[in-house]
Amino acid sequence: MTAASSRALVIYAHPRHQTSRACRQLLAAISDLDEVTIRDLYEEYPDFHINIGHEQSLLRNHQLVIFLFPLYWYSAPSLLKEWQDRVLNFALDEVPGRAGPEQDPLQGRMLWIATSVGASFSSFSAEGGNRYPLEQYLLPYEQTARVCRMAWQTPFMVCQARRKPESVLQRQAQSFRSILLGKLQALDNA
């Protein structure tokens, strides 16, 4: 997991990791990969005091950025929002006289959301209690990626995270892993 060989940066935000089911499985399924660096935000910054410079340099050194979090009130847990508020602004800095990566530090990188919800997929529909498809609730992230000139990736979503049997969650975690490996492979080929 050294920064040099690592290509994927997982920004993991879970305030109740100790009782998590789905996100914990997803994280466990990829934590052994050399090419993955994991930032466990609630473990790193329990006091919400984010080391901005350090986070920004990590972003510069990775091609694939993954936000992994449980969906709380149709958004990320507050520490990830704090992280966005503090860290991402540098993508907008316009430094006169410079161009390329200096100007757009996140340009060309991929942003991939992996999230879990307690409700079922069917509830995220016009007929269901959540009224809109899950993807629509992730629109702010899609737009964030666009503004930062990052390539938006189709989100990975786990539903009914509290009710599914462990074995099903494990299978989903494995497919999460293989999609990630595919993306890393694509990066290598590029």
Binding site: I52, R86, N89, F90, L92
Partner: peptide, 12 residues
């Protein structure tokens, strides 16, 4: 830096 960073309107 923090003041500048935060005063930078994210939605320009």
């Amino acid at each position: 830096a923090e003041v500048e960073n935060q005063e930078h309107n994210w939605d320009r």
